[in-house]
Amino acid sequence: MDEKGFESMNMVPFIDIMLVLLTIVLTTSSFIASGRIPVNLPQATASEPDTRQTETIEIDAAGTVYLAGEAVSTDTLKTRLGGMNKDTPVLLRADKAVALQRFIDVADVLKQLGFAKVAVQTEAGTS
């Protein structure tokens, strides 16, 4: 029987493996080199609930703005909020389907009027 020796080694599988390893190294190194500073955040106990009356502004999926359950325009919202105390907590509830510009318009009114205690209500999501 005639045995033939190796004339050449097939390098294609070796190159494929090396390219996959190189891709993995480059991908993970970009995450490591992103410059994130590790911060161990402090813990806090539950604070006392705010006993002051909260004003609620709601925006439905169609973009209609409601103040205390009543549909209002942006100008009416500005007028009605203008007479309120600026320390009044405001809860902003917006449908997730609402256009971002509509949400920004309402947030801009609150900022122009100087309301500092504004919260945006969200639902707890599952990860």
Rank of each mutant, 00 (worst) to 15 (best):
S30I: 15
I32T: 13
R36M: 09
I37W: 07
P38R: 08
V39D: 04
P42Q: 10
Q43S: 13
A46Y: 07
D50L: 04
T51L: 12
Q53R: 06
T56C: 06
I59L: 04
A62E: 07
A62K: 06
G63A: 05
L67G: 07
L67M: 10
A68Q: 03
E70T: 11
E70I: 09
A71W: 03
V72E: 00
S73C: 03
T74V: 06
D75R: 13
T76M: 14
L77A: 02
L77D: 00
K78V: 11
L81T: 01
G82L: 07
G82D: 10
G82M: 03
M84I: 06
N85G: 13
K86Q: 02
D87K: 10
T88A: 05
V90P: 02
V90H: 01
L91E: 02
R93G: 12
D95I: 02
K96R: 06
A97L: 15
L100P: 15
L100K: 03
Q101S: 15
R102W: 06
I104G: 07
D105F: 08
D105R: 00
D105I: 05
V106C: 08
A107E: 14
D108C: 08
D108Y: 03
V109P: 04
V109H: 01
K111E: 13
Q112F: 11
F115I: 01
A116N: 14
A119T: 09
V120H: 08
